[in-house]
Simulated scan of single mutants.
Amino acid sequence: MANPLSKGWKYLMASFDNKIDQNADPKVQIQQATEAAQKQHQEIMQHASQIIGQQKQLEMKLNRLVTDRDKLQDQARQAIQLADKAANDGDSVKAQEFNNTAEVFASQLVAVEQQLEQTTALHQQAEVAAKDAVAKSKESEMRLKEQMSQIDALRAQADQAKMQETVTKSMDSLNQFGSQDSSVPTLDAVRDKIERRYADALGAQELTQNTVGDRMAEIQQSGTDMRASARLEELRAEALGTSTASKGQLEAGVEEAEELIDEPSGSTPAAEDSEGTEGTEKK
């Protein structure tokens, strides 16, 4: 059974890593990926250089052993020749010394040849490893170039995304500045208020047109018109010498018009109707 504390700690770390990834700057992550790719390529190149260096070192040792072998072979031959010459000259002691020297050279030659054989085998292995390291280094270089190309594209996309975010924030700021302040009335509200007041004024005017005062004014205006018409007829009668009866009718019409004009302003519509009826009966 898993330890609850360990399980909770792993969960917290995973959640923390997830939050870091969500809030991380893409350009910083791109830079981290770039550094990681470059570091990996450097490690591969360093390892390849070490392998190639070992191959070169074994090659130098191999050349040195070959030189030592050739030198020991020459010295052993020379010692053998001197020992043979001393033996021919009858100097056995000297011949023995040269033989002993030849044996020492031969022993050294055998050791060098063994080292040479081992070094040759190691050099062959190092040569194969060096070729493989060179191939891997080239692959790593090509992979790094491809990664850098992708990184450049990601950087361009990150810059474009950041620019788009800046434009979006600017548009949001403009929208905030363009929004209507709640403490200031809108044009639509002011227009509705003006139209409402204008409509109320039209309604009040329509009501006042039907009041008693307006009707009295109409009656007074009608009486003035009747008086003017009667006066005009009187003047026409005088000018044309009309009969006395016609003149009396004109005077009655003038008096009726004067009564209509001189009626008090506080009379009710009922009184006006009764007076109109009396005037009709007089006529």
Rank of each mutant, 00 (worst) to 15 (best):
S49Y: 01
A76I: 03
E141G: 14
K56G: 03
G90H: 01
R155I: 03
R77L: 12
K131C: 08
V66N: 15
H123I: 03
Q73C: 05
D132M: 06
D74A: 15
F105Y: 12
Q42N: 12
Q46E: 06
E113I: 02
K145T: 03
T101A: 14
Q31H: 10
Q78L: 12
Q125M: 11
K136M: 03
T34E: 15
A121Q: 15
V66L: 09
D132I: 00
M45W: 00
T34M: 12
Q38I: 06
L109H: 06
E59D: 08
M142Y: 01
K27E: 06
V28Y: 07
E146T: 04
L109Y: 04
V104P: 00
M142C: 08
K145I: 02
N99Y: 01
Q38S: 14
Q125N: 07
A86W: 02
A76Q: 11
M60N: 04
S149K: 02
E141T: 00
A76N: 07
S92Y: 13
F98T: 00
Q150I: 01
M60W: 09
L154T: 00
V104W: 10
S107T: 00
D70T: 04
N99E: 10
L62Y: 09
K56D: 14
Q157C: 04
T120A: 15
N88F: 07
S149V: 03
A121C: 14
T34S: 15
Q81R: 08
A37V: 04
K85C: 05
R64W: 06
V112D: 00
F105P: 07
H123A: 15
